[in-house]
Amino acid sequence: MTIQVEHLCKYYQVHQKEPGLIGSVKSFVKRKYADVKAVDDVSFHIDAGEIVGFLGPNGAGKTTTLKVLSGLLYPTSGSARVLGFTPSERRKEYLSKITLVMGQKQQLNWDLPAIETFLVNAAIYEIPDAQFKSTLDELTELLELKPLLNKQVRKLSLGERMKCELAAALLHRPQVLFLDEPTIGLDVTMQTKIRQFITEYNERHRATIILTSHYMADVTALCRRVIVIDHGRMLYDGDLHALAEKIAPHKLIRVEFSETLNGHRLEEYGEVVKTRGQRAELLVPRDATSGVAARMLAELPIADVTIEEPPIEQVITRGFEEAARARAERGESDEDEGEED
């Protein structure tokens, strides 16, 4: 087992300041602190070679968890072990086997070409020359870096820079990759390329990967398994598609009619998501799906009908919305917590 996390908690004390000068004076005399539970009793195990998606809204605790796993943060309680190491000990042997890529932070030197940073990293990680050359060749090929390597980093576009960042983070051939929003701000073509690259890297090196992303497409394309956290708590750990079944209370019925509907009200059958010409899409409670479909077939002039899971993006967005509503009803606050940058 590559990653073992048991009852991990990470609480921050955050200084609260009222606005304005009076607030400043008050906070100088007596500081108020609030405890923020960025990660609250999270446990999971990940095997070698798995790609796991970390899902959750902003401030859910995703970044904090990745920072604990990469040794940047001490857990408040609970434990984490990766590759047999305790990350917070920050052993050199450990740091040489992992990488953390943060889409919003960069390690490349802004004023120099990327290749210079690569050479520095080769020295820092004590990569033998031959291995450095072959890894660089491989990354250059997979990420199409050839025209970028000798250009000043500040002259590169966002997507080009991200590719170079990935390369810089992978030169030492880490066995475990923590990718925090690796495709943030990139256009669709570039997102696809980065995704393909991650898959390739995983297959070639059997690397273990945890990935967070706001783009569901990243997760659906890369991860069979997802871990969902919200407000520091773990909501789900398992198969991506089973997640839809578990948290989506509805199924989607798509129908095509043989003639234009007259006098039939589709709302009777379920929540109408879309109608266009003689086609319609309805959301129907999961348990009632077959009954409703049968009724529609009997009562309406139907040419074609399919029953599907609703798109995973919708499911998860709704799931979080409902969780937030439930919290609001219980009177819990729902402010943005946890993730600091």
Partner: peptide
């Protein structure tokens, strides 16, 4: 700015 984190990720 949190850039120290990036330096702390290196085994150095």
């Amino acid at each position: 700015h949190g850039d120290l984190s990036i330096k702390l990720l290196h085994p150095l």
